[in-house]
């Protein structure tokens, strides 16, 4: 799923939290869908930087998905500020879907 990070341990915990965020249209979580691009953590343990995308910029559920991703990290990393960067460059493509995700979609 190619998530760039500067802290592998925290990234694993964060991804586990983000697996609870489901794209309601597809029914698949945003990690297996490949929407998470980058997760960085500052050294003071105060800030989390999440860079993610959506399957399309036109996604009507975009607000809910990004809000849910932010909320999932804030709940897991209590007291840390989550800074979310929504990007469409590079745009999402189906090659970002994990093997688990492809099985889920019967692809």
């Amino acid at each position: 799923m190619n998530v760039v990070t500067n802290n592998n341990i925290k990234c694993t915990i964060a991804l586990a939290a983000l697996e609870n965020v489901i794209d309601p249209e597809i029914g698949l979580n945003i990690v297996d869908l490949g929407l998470v691009y980058q997760l960085d953590f500052d050294e003071e343990g105060k800030k989390i930087f999440l860079s993610m995308t959506l399957t399309t910029q036109f996604c009507p559920m975009g607000e809910s998905i990004t809000a849910a991703a932010k909320r999932a990290l804030e709940t897991t990393f209590d007291g840390e500020e989550v800074i979310l960067n929504l990007t469409f460059d590079p745009p999402w493509n189906y090659e970002r879907i994990s093997e688990e995700g492809k099985k889920f979609l019967n692809y």
Binding site: Q57, N85, T87, D89
Partner: peptide
């Protein structure tokens, strides 16, 4: 840190 990714905007 995020310089490589220009921000996108969400439709309200």
């Amino acid at each position: 840190m995020f310089g490589a990714f220009p921000s996108g905007s969400l439709v309200k």
